[in-house]
Amino acid sequence: MTVDVHSPESTADHGHHTSLGISNTKLAMWCFIGSECLFFGALISAYLIYINERADGPGAELFDIEFTSASTFILLMSSLSMVLALAGIQAGDMRRFRIWIVATGLMGSVFLAGQIYEFTVFLSEGANVTVSPFWSAFFLLTGFHGVHVAFGILMLIAAWASSLTGRLRMENAETIENLGLYWHFVDVVWILLFTLVYLIPALGGGGS
């Protein structure tokens, strides 16, 4: 491992002076994402272990695959708009950046609204955390994913507002890259969840 010259005057987060020549914040973000793998892994494994523990309650037949497919598609496309926002700020085109960052936030919000709607439907059909281990695991897993999306939306709004006030500029593209890493990770988790949580159990349970 080679070592760059470490300038003594700063502990700031820019890649120029670090031992590995990479930025501190980005490294921290990847550490966090590595940690999140274990977090979502635990939630997913609990769901898979309890997939047949329905205690005479409803099961995967409640899933509306058409609806979830649509919201999955929207979240996937928000990842595309996120990278387009990053390309925008890296090119110094703040107008394009703002368009795409708002688009990302909107798509994330639509996804979140869809999830809330879906939850209310399930609740009205008699599924809630107390019904069976299956639904306990389902709500905790998808709920935590929703919380991650919501936190991402907050950060997107903050980034958009900062670009309006001029705090966020082309030089800060890395902040958007890190935000993007978080957002894509949340999307990647949903890619897994859509198959593992919705499609496969619904197949086993005879479709919607």
């Binding site: 990847w30 550490c31 994402i33 590595g34 940690s35 793998c37 274990l38 979502f40 892994g41």
Partner: peptide, 10 residues
């Protein structure tokens, strides 16, 4: 980092 987390979890 990412694959350590992912593979360890798996």
């Amino acid at each position: 980092l990412f694959f350590t987390g992912g593979i360890l979890a798996t």
